[in-house]
Every structure is written in C-alpha cells, then in structure tokens.
Amino acid sequence: MFFHIVLERNMQLHPRYFGRNLRDNLVSKLMKDVEGTCSGRHGFVVAVTGIENIGKGLIRDGTGFVTFPVKYQCVVFRPFKGEILEAVVTMVNKMGFFAEAGPVQIFVSNHLIPDDMEFQSGDMPNYTTSDGSVKIQKDSEVRLKIMGTRVDATEIFCIGTIKDDFLGVINDPATA
C-alpha cells in the first residue's frame, strides 16, 4: 500500500556545496540518499515529493560538514498481509517462483500455486496448466495475494499466493 507521509532526516552537507545552490544541492542529495531505501517501519521510500522545512544548519567540529534537519514529504510503499499486488516474475524453480512488485520481492511457493499447474523444467522453467493455456515463467505478470511478510530493519520480504479467485497470470509475455 502507498502512503504519502512526512519524514525527517539529518542531512550532512560538504562545505563545497555552500553557496547560492545550497538548498537545491541539499534536496538533490536527499533524493539520492533516501529514494529506494527501505525501512521496516515505513516501507520503501518511492519518491520525495516536497520539502516541508529545512532547519538551521549545525557546523560539525573538525570536519566543516554542516548538518541540516530536513523535513520532507515522500511516497512510501509498504506491503501488508492480505494485500493484492501485481508483480513481475523474476525467477521460476521447482520450489515456486519469485516475483517483484516494484522494490518488493515476493516468493510464491509451489503449494500456493494452483494444483492444476505443474512445474516444467528446462531452458525456461515454468508452471503450466495441463492444457497449456496458462503459463507462468520469467517476466510473466501475475496478480498475487500477500500471505506473509518478513520485515527487518532495512528489508521487507513477502510470500504470496496465487491460489485464489482472480489471482494468477494477468499478462503473458509469450502470447502478448
């Protein structure tokens, strides 16, 4: 699920950036630093959308670096149990398949794949129904439901299922 929230961060800026563009430099450095990171608490930071407030800088002794407390708005993505996501399959093996929904990695184990789909090994390992009409392989797009999440301080990993109504392949690259 996406959230638009305000976060705060202490940015350290090298003295060489001081000048007319200090603020721009600060913002671009902020974006470089936080976008794409993941915190267990808020999820993945997708994009910084604005700066709320930049506090007074504090010059560090010895280094000349200046620390600015920056409040910024950002979009975060946090997967939840039970959430339905669309994801791209990245890897298929006999244990199941891995998929990515943006920054989130999701593993779907083979017993959460519908019973009528079977693993076919080979050059392009895939899960196929007995009549061959549906095929899950690398780069397939699937809709899945998150069954569990593992949230560490800097990492979120999910397991999902496609064994439910309206879940499964939504766009097969082979046929599209």
């Binding site: 199941g96 990695q105 184990s109 069954m147 569990g148 299922t161």
Partner: peptide, 20 residues
C-alpha cells in the same frame, strides 16, 4: 501457507520467508 524447508544433512529448518 508458510511452506517449511528442512536440510536433510544438518536438520536446520527454514520457511518460505527465508527463500530469498
């Protein structure tokens, strides 16, 4: 839902959340 895996040699157990 959380599939479990076990190592036959050392007996260590994992579940699907460790898959990555």
């Amino acid at each position: 839902t959380v599939q479990e895996y076990v190592c036959p040699t050392c007996g260590k157990r994992y579940n699907a959340l460790d898959a990555l």
